[in-house]
Amino acid sequence: MPRYARSEREALTELMSTLGPDAPTLDEGWTTRDLAAHLVIRERRPDAAAGIALKPLRNRAERIQREVAALDWAELLDQVRRPPVWSPVSNPLTDELANTMEFFIHHEDVRRAQADWRPRELPVELERTLWRRGRLLARMALRRFPARLLVQAPGHGEVTVGRGGEPLRLAGTPGELVLFLSGRQRATRVECDGPPALVDRLRGSNLGF
């Protein structure tokens, strides 16, 4: 069985090693060093990882993020490359479920922040996995969008989301749709058809979590 969480992790750490700690990413204000620190905290510091989603804990999480980011670059990358087996999100039982989409997105965050990036041709099984995640992501990210929005991944399926109203169509490969729906709209290659005002609103919405 393919281990896409592992292969995306390895590709990301290799790319960050090549680019160095100060390369840009699609995550606003973050360099590769900041992204690496985020990944380390997510897997190794559950006491701080909660601050990613919970505002009352955010100040503490940001302080720990700065402390981890200050580690030696080689050590930081090694911690990303070799997650602890006790981690709730990267142990052998949870790795594929918790990390395939996470590391695919962050790999693309680094790739697509570089001037010469090109879309990758992904393995079919990885596309299928990303579409399974993407359908749920679409329902979560677009449940309140003021349109009847058809999200299509040709060859994989489609899902209708939104609050209803004027029709809108968003189409692309599963990988492009996952990136779009996670807030990376401007760095994706998708088709978006419908009333221009709604298309612009969708492309400019804050869809990240």
Rank of each mutant, 00 (worst) to 15 (best):
R66Q: 14
P56Q: 09
D27F: 14
E28Y: 11
N59F: 13
I64C: 07
R60T: 12
E43T: 13
A49Y: 10
A36V: 00
A37L: 03
R33Q: 01
R60F: 07
L57I: 07
D27Q: 13
P56H: 03
D72E: 13
L39A: 04
R58K: 08
L54E: 04
A37V: 00
A49Q: 12
A37D: 01
A70H: 04
V68M: 10
A61I: 02
I41C: 07
T31N: 02
A49M: 14
G29Y: 11
T31L: 10
A53P: 06
R33K: 03
P46V: 09
D72M: 03
H38C: 11
L54C: 02
L71Q: 13
P56G: 10
A48C: 08
L39N: 05
Q65W: 10
D27N: 12
I64L: 14
A37W: 01
A48G: 08
A70M: 06
I52C: 09
A36D: 01
D47L: 15
P56I: 00
L54R: 04
G51H: 01
R44E: 15
R63A: 14
A69M: 11
A37M: 02
E67G: 12
Q65L: 06
R63K: 15
L35E: 01
R44S: 12
E28F: 14
T32I: 10
A48Y: 08
A70G: 06
L54Y: 07
A53S: 13
E43H: 10
A49H: 06
V40A: 05
E67P: 09
V68L: 05
E67F: 11
I41G: 05
D72Y: 04
A61Q: 14
A48R: 06
A53Y: 06
W30Q: 00
V40W: 01
A36C: 03
G29V: 11
I52M: 14
A69D: 14
L39Y: 02
G51I: 00
P46H: 14
T31F: 06
T31R: 14
I41E: 01
I52V: 15
E62C: 10
L39I: 09
L35I: 04
E43D: 15
G51D: 00
R66M: 07
V40T: 03
R63I: 13
I52E: 14
L35H: 00
R44N: 07
R45I: 13
A48V: 13
Q65C: 05
L39D: 02
T32Y: 08
A50T: 08
R44T: 09
R58I: 02
H38A: 11
N59R: 15
N59T: 15
A37G: 00
E67L: 11
E43M: 09
E43C: 08
P56D: 07
P46F: 13
E67S: 14
L35C: 03
R60E: 06
L54I: 03
R63V: 12
D34C: 02
Q65R: 11
R60W: 10
R33L: 01
G51T: 00
A37K: 03
I64A: 08
E62L: 15
A36I: 00
L35S: 05
N59Q: 15
A37R: 01
A70D: 15
A69H: 12
R44Y: 07
R44I: 04
G51W: 00
I64E: 12
T31Q: 10
Q65N: 07
E43Q: 15
R42V: 04
L57V: 03
R44W: 06
